[in-house]
């Protein structure tokens, strides 16, 4: 419950104080969101599995976002552009999908 409230608080915060994202950081935002979603769903699933761990969640969130951003940056620098980010999206997408499937099985037993 507290987690949902915290999430909602973050949303409200973002709505109340919409920050101006520096142009330099803009390309990293979408991939950071995907990484954050991966951490989020991983956390939810771990919670449902009963093995949730605060440290693990925070570390996975921070590292996911940073690594995803770094890969996008690397792709830009290497000139392969979106292809590296495609890799990130695929990997994270697969994980999100798997975790959501597990959550679904928890919740609906189907």
């Amino acid at each position: 419950m507290a987690a949902v409230l915290a999430l909602a608080a973050g949303v409200v915060l973002g709505l109340l104080f919409p920050p101006t994202v520096p142009v330099l950081l803009q390309p990293y935002l979408p991939i950071a969101v995907v990484a954050a979603l991966d951490a989020l769903f991983g956390g939810i699933r771990a919670k449902l599995d009963g093995i949730f761990d605060d440290k693990q969640f925070v570390v996975s969130f921070v590292s996911n976002v940073l690594v995803a951003a770094f890969i996008v940056y690397l792709g830009d620098q290497l000139g392969v552009g979106g292809q590296l980010s495609t890799g990130v999206v695929v990997v994270l997408g697969v994980r999100i999908f798997g975790n959501v499937a597990a959550i679904r099985r928890h919740l609906f037993r189907a």
Binding site: A3, A6, L7, A8, A9, G10, V11, V12, L13, G14, L15, P18, P19, V21, L29, A32, V33, A36, A39, L40, F57, V58, F61, V62, V65
Partner: peptide, 11 residues
């Protein structure tokens, strides 16, 4: 971290 996630989503 959760607040940050929510913030990130909105942003």
């Amino acid at each position: 971290a959760l607040v940050l996630v929510g913030f990130l989503l909105v942003v």
